[in-house]
Every structure is written in C-alpha cells, then in structure tokens.
C-alpha cells in the first residue's frame, strides 16, 4: 500500500495522496490531515495521482475543508485527478471540489 507523502514546504504541509485512496486509506489520510493542521496553518493535499477513491477519503477531505473554514486556516486540493473529480460529481460534491481545488 502506498503511503501518504508528507512534506513541509515553506511552512505549508503538503500531503501527496497515493493512487489508491480506498477505504483502508481513510484512517491514514484522516490522521495526515489532522497532523497537517496540527503542524501548519496551511495544508495542501496533492490529488494528482489519485486513481481510486472511496467516499470515506472524500469525506475526510470534506472535514478538512470544513475545519479550515471554521478555524481560518488554508486548505486546498491540488490538481484533483479525473477519478477524484468524477467521484465528487457522483457524490454531488462538484461545487465543493471546485471551491477547494487548485490547478
């Protein structure tokens, strides 16, 4: 299982999401997001490599965006892959993704 790649770039925490964001990845992703917000005001989730995604992982990203909104932090989903985009469309979350994603 590919792990989430954590990097700290100029005070920003960047989480490189793996290709496989299945259900078993939801917990590591959630912990990564929590730790990210614990370490920095800005958390970027790089989703360019995502080839499979579960609702659980999207839900974790949703909670992260909500956390950022509530606590005046910055959160962004970088280069969401087609698979992630399609999954969000399926889930009725296309506007949310559009709001929180960065090219």
């Amino acid at each position: 299982m590919t792990l989430i790649k954590w990097s700290d770039e100029g005070g920003q925490v960047r989480l490189g999401l793996p290709s496989d964001l299945d259900l078993p990845m939801a917990q590591p992703l959630l912990e990564g997001l929590r730790a990210g917000f614990g370490a920095s005001d800005t958390v970027i989730a790089d989703a360019g490599a995502v080839e499979r995604v579960s609702t659980a992982c999207i839900q974790a990203l949703l909670a992260a965006s909500r956390h950022a909104a509530e606590h005046n932090r910055t959160f962004a989903i970088l280069q969401p892959s087609e698979v992630l985009t399609e999954a969000c469309e399926d889930l009725g979350l296309a506007p949310w993704l559009k709001q929180w994603s960065r090219a």
């Binding site: 917990q27 997001l33 929590r34 839900q59 949703l62 992260a64 909500r66 509530e70 009725g92 949310w96």
Partner: peptide, 22 residues
C-alpha cells in the same frame, strides 16, 4: 442532480474515518 447532505459530518477531530456521515 445530486445533492449531498453534509449536516451530519462531524468536525475533523471527531471524524471516524470509516463511518459514513453523508
């Protein structure tokens, strides 16, 4: 047209990763 109801989603610290709130 699909409308996702997010009202039950708990805050990030309280989220259980594998439970569904949507």
């Amino acid at each position: 047209t699909i409308d996702c109801d997010l009202r039950s989603l708990p805050p990030l610290p309280a989220l259980e990763a594998e439970l569904l709130y949507l």
